[in-house]
């Protein structure tokens, strides 16, 4: 085993070169390069964290503006619905008013026509009585030769009409 048989001859050079090598690695790599690598990693982590924060901020902003936009839209829709409802209500009221007026007009006309009709009927009846009493006088004269007065005839006709 050369590790043991050569030990006495080589340990000094082994230790010298080993310590030299380790010292160079320790100071150049461990103390020199490692902090740089670490700083790079830290800088990258910080950059990523900052970028993520910014992205989050932008997203929040976008959500807020969307929210505002949605609220505006809802307000506009509500306004439009209110206007529509008001217009509908007004139109309904107008219609009812017009309908009421028209109804009244029609009712007035009907009442007038009925009054006229009544008057006409009364006039016609009066005429009829007069004609009937004259006819009655004529008939009585022709049948009996006696003359009845106009008043008697009229009373008789009125009685018959009332009985009819």
């Amino acid at each position: 085993m050369p590790q043991i048989s050569q030990l006495a001859l080589v340990y000094q050079s082994q230790w010298f070169w080993l310590v030299l090598t380790l010292a160079v690695i320790f100071f150049v790599v461990g103390r020199g390069i490692l902090p740089k690598v670490e700083a790079t990693i830290d800088a990258r982590d910080a950059k990523i964290a900052a970028d993520l924060d910014e992205a989050q901020r932008f997203q929040d902003e976008a959500e807020a503006s969307e929210e505002a936009w949605r609220r505006q839209l809802n307000n506009a829709r509500a306004d439009a619905q209110a206007v529509t409802a008001k217009a509908k209500q007004k139109a309904q009221a107008d219609l009812e008013k017009k309908l009421a007026k028209a109804d009244k007009d029609v009712a007035d006309k009907i009442a007038a026509a009925e009054a006229e009709l009544d008057a006409a009927r009364k006039a016609a009846l009066t005429e009829l009585e007069a004609v009937a009493s004259e006819a009655t006088q004529d008939i009585v004269v022709k049948l009996t030769g006696t003359k009845v007065s106009q008043a008697e005839a009229r009373a008789a006709v009125a009685g018959a009409l009332a009985n009819a």
């Binding site: 050569q6 006495a8 001859l9 080589v10 000094q12 050079s13 082994q14 230790w15 010298f16 070169w17 080993l18 030299l20 090598t21 160079v24 690695i25 150049v28 790599v29």
Partner: peptide, 24 residues
């Protein structure tokens, strides 16, 4: 011959230097 002195440059020392160079 191996002389038992600290500064003798052996194949072992050479490979340590190679290791060092590769690491750096």
């Amino acid at each position: 011959e191996l002389t038992g002195t600290p500064f003798q440059f052996t194949n072992s020392a050479m490979w340590m230097i190679v290791v060092l160079a590769v690491i750096i």
